[in-house]
Design a protein around this nucleic acid. Structure first.
Lengths: 205, 205
DNA sequence: TAGATTGTTAATCGATTAACAATC
DNA sequence: TAGATTGTTAATCGATTAACAATC
């Protein structure tokens, strides 16, 4: 039973938002409260939770702690998953920074670059190795997710190396579209596209 | 006549891909060639071009130079648009780096931060000012797009400041979802969500 | 001509939302 | 009880794709 990608995205956001609520001392939450914290409708939230078979109560809504647990059951692998960042430029460092906050099921365990200034040392707490060692380390450490943050002209080459090392998922943050490959999940995001889109719709408002 | 957001995204990617083809000395291109360079189908490409009323020929496909021109007519504002980056951390610098390559209709003209180490100097060729000066500079320079790359706990405050300074579009790259506001186009991207999504689907493959 | 391609409509697919029964 | 909320189905909306006529 595979959930829709959009639902997975929202579950990920619900969970982080729920952690915040918990920190603020909240214990229960209604679908309309979750909806207003995101940009969505209560019915959207309830339908997403229906899809993961999480029930609330009509008087108290959802118990935050339990809901976080339910979402984790769905989107986390029980053993956790390891990620590697390929390309330790500004973007790569930004991604590392995002994740160094939390010790979660999903964690960054290695970074790769070709620049000898960056390799064989820690960057924001993450071991950085030369790209030549990538395939070996990915296999040895059982890294399943690769994030491509190299200059776009190197994206294809890096993607092939990742595929050959047996990676399961790739997040490509360069603006070079990569070929879909069977048995590998590919997610892509292109910031230039987002900016051009924002510019287009901003001029129509 | 507003085009679908998905079509705008693809047009932006088609155009950059076409620039590459032009550089390689190509003059004409078929829909199936464009499709195979992206991850889409020829019919998708033809339908997108239909929506912008760009015609090709059945024997030569599309003339690349003309197609680039047609796409520009649709997605560029004739006078161009100016962008500002708010938050000059790793992510902000990455965005600046992406755009410093090209002199296009869309350009980054200012960056803002609170850190005095970063303000009142150029960062990758872009003038960086203190956030306190933001509203004034946005108005004076007629900046229409703001990119939020600050730490997520400051996102709401920065977004309000941008809205008050009369910005038209916001690209929020923090993982704090912002409220939809009338007369402002809001685009959001959350890298943590992308990673959790990639991890989920990678484990299902 | 035969094969390939474009342009377009109609069908399909998938995601969101309206409507509503159940119930706290 | 009246009002609010959940859970779920059915309707709607929007995006993709199949099908095909036109024609180079």
């Amino acid at each position: 039973m595979d959930l829709p990608g959009k639902t997975i995205e929202r579950l990920s956001m619900y969970r982080r938002l729920l952690f915040n609520c918990l920190k603020e001392g909240k214990h229960n939450i209604f679908s309309h409260e979750i909806a207003s914290l995101m940009h969505t409708k209560p019915v959207q939230v309830r339908r997403d939770l229906m899809l993961i078979s999480h029930s609330g109560s009509k008087s108290k809504g959802y118990i935050i702690k339990n809901l976080i647990e339910s979402i984790g059951q769905i989107i986390d692998s029980p053993e956790g998953q390891k990620m590697a960042i390929v390309g330790v430029g500004n973007l790569g460092r930004a991604v590392i920074g995002y994740f160094s906050e939390k010790k979660q099921k999903l964690s960054i365990v290695a970074a790769f670059d070709i620049d000898s200034e960056k390799t064989n040392r820690k960057i924001s707490g993450i071991n950085c190795y030369h790209i030549n060692e990538m395939q070996e380390i990915i296999k040895k450490d059982n890294i399943t997710i690769g994030v491509i943050t190299v200059p776009k002209d190197n994206a294809i080459e890096i993607s092939n190396k990742l595929i050959n090392s047996g990676i399961k998922g790739i997040l490509n943050l360069t603006s070079m579209p990569l070929k879909e490959t069977s048995n590998i999940y590919l997610e892509e995001y292109d910031i230039i596209t987002s900016l051009e889109k924002a510019a287009y719709f901003a001029s129509k408002v």
